[in-house]
Amino acid sequence: MNPLEPTRARPGPDATATFDGMPLRALPGQTVAAALWAAGVTAWRGTRGTGEPRGVFCGIGVCFDCLLVVNGRPNQRACLVPVRPGDVIRTQRGTGRDDD
């Protein structure tokens, strides 16, 4: 079932951003994490030590596990940041600053 139906939501047009160069569509106000999940992506960070995959853990901005790079800024919490049209979103490896 489309979750928009029971709430009779009439959202505005999708925003289009990119994730690692691929197009990523998002409803207005949808967070990066929600848009990535909707696109079937569940991991977008490699840990600092061994590069283990990470995605959403707490989902409410507390755990800092879902970090990624938005428009060149590392350590953005995917669960809090809304997708804006034209955003360039990238997987974060380590601190996300190695190429500073």
Partner: peptide, 8 residues
């Protein structure tokens, strides 16, 4: 004490 984001 103030703690920054992880850095190289």
């Amino acid at each position: 004490v103030l703690v920054t984001e992880p850095l190289p």
